[in-house]
Nucleic acid binder design. Structure first.
Lengths: 129, 129
DNA sequence: ATTGACCTTCCCGTGCAGGGGAAGGTGCAG
DNA sequence: CTGCACCTTCCCCTGCACGGGAAGGTCAAT
């Protein structure tokens, strides 16, 4: 199958597949006589794996690392476990930061919502932030 | 005061202050005879306002909009209120997404943590993701 | 006179994951 | 023959908020 068909099969664009090849997430594609990239079902499952990883919030660099481990003949499970564990730590940190930020913004919002613009001090641009 | 002094007074770099001027968050600075930028206390409070906005998670584009409203002679309070309200909505959305992602990643993590790498299917790269 | 700490403008690079569009080749239908 | 959809490589652009470093000017102290 050609690149456009492969792309729509997994919900990507041709551009993205070429980009993945360029970044080393896909091996250089086989070419048919006219120079067009030619893909088999193994590439499709590889692309689907990439999508599953992305929906787990992994970066392309992390996905590439996992794929390279698999390509070198080793099961990537241990590394995947480590990456997901770190992902949990990072997510907890980010969520905590955003939650604190939300509380701070909500406090500002309550203040300004109860305020009278007439009291706004020009020197401070806006007195309520 | 010159740019370096202003920068350290508010905890920024000279680069950042020039960048803000370039982006229109600061008016073109007055220059002394040698061409150096010269700042007064009004710029300092403007920079401090920018910092307060940033710690509330506003983008430079939003801050610029608020500053322009103030510069045009109007109190920006109403617009600030709207922006903070939208900020709350966005934060809630992001936090909800990240929380869902965390649950999904945690589920993957539990699965792989309990799995035996021997069962990992090569076709799927990693069976547990 | 020369160092050293400032300052100026200018352009390019960072991270992330692609997207836009040019210029040209291929293959099939009408 | 022409149109159309598809493919190729190539290079630059996006958003976000700056940072790095070059090449050169300025000023006070030594």
């Amino acid at each position: 199958m050609r690149i456009g068909e492969a792309a729509s099969a997994v919900g990507l664009t041709s551009k993205t597949i070429r980009f993945y090849e360029d970044r080393g997430l896909l091996p250089p594609a086989a070419r048919s006589a006219n120079g067009y990239r030619e893909y088999g079902p193994d590439t499709i499952s590889r692309l689907e794996f990439i999508r599953r990883c992305q929906s787990a919030g992994l970066t392309l660099a992390q996905i590439q690392e996992i794929l390279h481990i698999r390509d070198s003949g080793t099961t990537p499970c241990t590394r995947v476990r480590d990456i997901l564990g770190q992902q949990l730590i990072d997510l907890d940190k980010t969520i905590a930061e955003l939650t604190a930020l939300r509380a701070s913004v909500a406090e500002h919002f309550r203040t300004i919502d109860a305020a009278d613009p007439i009291n706004c001090d020009k020197e401070q641009i806006c007195s309520y932030i």
